[in-house]
Design a protein around this nucleic acid. Structure first.
Length: 373
DNA sequence: AAGGCGGGGTG
DNA sequence: CACCCAGCCTT
């Protein structure tokens, strides 16, 4: 018994036809009773709404996405509306949601749909996958939910459900196990109601088939779950190895001109790409914030006054980084208001205009800390 | 194959 | 803290 036994199992990819039918029937019946009422499900046949929701849902929880989706779909109700929008306004609406590259990819996808697909979201998985930001999962989700195309999907939730259903204790991050999971999803997805079936699999992973302490008696698939039968639900799937969290420090210049603050737009690539922020300068390894502050000072407009010391610290924890901001306050006189800093667009902004700028939670925390918000 | 990319929820 | 989340892209 135990881990050694798990690996002696040949990993099945299919079940017999009768079992497959029973699994589909039970799962769909469960979905009919327990499906969550989500805003994008009310537009189930609108492929643009599904595409938008799926992009927002990447690595992001449903409850977090809902208010963002609601604002976004009102402001940009169609592919055409989004395609012709300004990226700054898109990022402003995306502010706080994270993974900001998604917003840029979504914009690019909308423009490609207009340019290459006559403004209509394509129906096939292969065509969908040509869109920026759309991989196998998202393509399958949009195709099956919006167009009722029989396509499998495997995301984090479905991965867990299928790994348990087949008692597959392999590491889901490996290509071999990934292939098995997709093969199982492919074999199970029905021809009719495939979109509902896929959403049911995801809902099941949301509850009751949660990562820790799943509520198996509430699961419609318990009679068919191999992990349940073997008492392995707490070990399947194995926990994912995580990248180590590294620490980083940056200095920040909070420069006021009256009630306004100086903002700079970050480069499109990398962390918080394309968002606006207060001017920053990274603190190198084996360097003090004071050293970085001196470099920061040199980049600022002539006539800017910047404090030489600060006690203001703001800490933020990202998934892969722990960042400490050392915030130096200062002032700009009327002769030192730039439109660019090191080639990046710069502008003064009043509180009332902040909603027009895409900014990160970290930046917002800094603005709050200095008493500006 | 591995790392980068945000932010929030939960125990 | 640890671990997770309706992934994808780059190197």
């Amino acid at each position: 018994m135990g881990v050694s036994k798990i690996h002696t199992h040949a990993q099945r990819v299919t079940v017999d036809a009768a079992t497959a039918r029973a699994i589909r029937r039970r799962l769909l019946a469960w979905f009919d009773r327990h499906a969550r009422d989500l805003p994008w499900r009310r537009r189930g046949s609108d492929p643009y709404a599904q595409l938008l929701a799926e992009l927002m849902l990447h690595q992001t929880q449903v409850a977090t996405v809902i208010p963002y989706y609601e604002r976004f779909i009102v402001r940009f109700p169609t592919v055409a509306a989004l395609a012709s929008a300004d990226i700054d306004e898109i990022l402003a609406l995306w502010s706080g949601l994270g993974y900001y590259r998604r917003a840029r990819l979504l914009h690019a996808a909308a423009r490609k749909i207009v340019a290459d697909f006559q403004g209509q979201v394509p129906r096939s998985v292969d065509a969908l996958m040509t869109l920026p930001g759309v991989g196998r999962y998202t393509a399958g989700a949009v195709a099956s939910i919006a167009f009722d195309v029989r396509a499998p999907i495997v995301d984090g939730n479905v991965m867990r459900v299928l790994a348990r259903l087949f008692a597959d204790a392999g590491d889901p991050s490996t290509p071999e196990v990934q292939r098995r999971l997709w093969a199982r999803a492919e074999a199970l997805v029905p021809r009719r109601r495939c979109g509902a079936f896929n959403q049911a699999l995801m809902d099941l992973g949301g509850s009751p088939c949660v990562p820790v302490a799943p509520d198996c008696p509430a699961c419609p698939l318990m009679p068919y779950c191999a992990a349940w039968a073997e008492g392995l639900t707490d070990r399947i799937p194995p926990a994912r190895r995580r990248a180590k969290v590294r620490t980083a420090a940056v200095t920040v210049a909070a420069l006021r001109r009256g009630e306004r603050l100086l903002f700079v737009r970050r480069a499109d690539d990398g962390l918080w790409g394309g968002l606006w922020e207060l001017p920053t300068e990274p603190v190198g390894e084996s360097e003090s914030p004071t050293d970085a502050r001196a470099r920061l000072r040199k980049r600022l407009p002539v006539g800017a006054r910047l404090a030489t010391a600060t006690d203001l610290r703001v800490k933020r924890l990202l998934s892969h980084r722990r960042v400490t901001f050392h915030v130096y306050e200062g002032r700009l006189n009327s002769h030192s208001i730039p439109s660019a800093l090191d080639g990046q667009p710069a502008r003064l902004a009043a509180r009332e205009k902040l909603a027009e700028l895409g900014i990160s939670r970290a930046c917002k925390a800094i603005l709050t800390r200095i008493g500006w918000l």
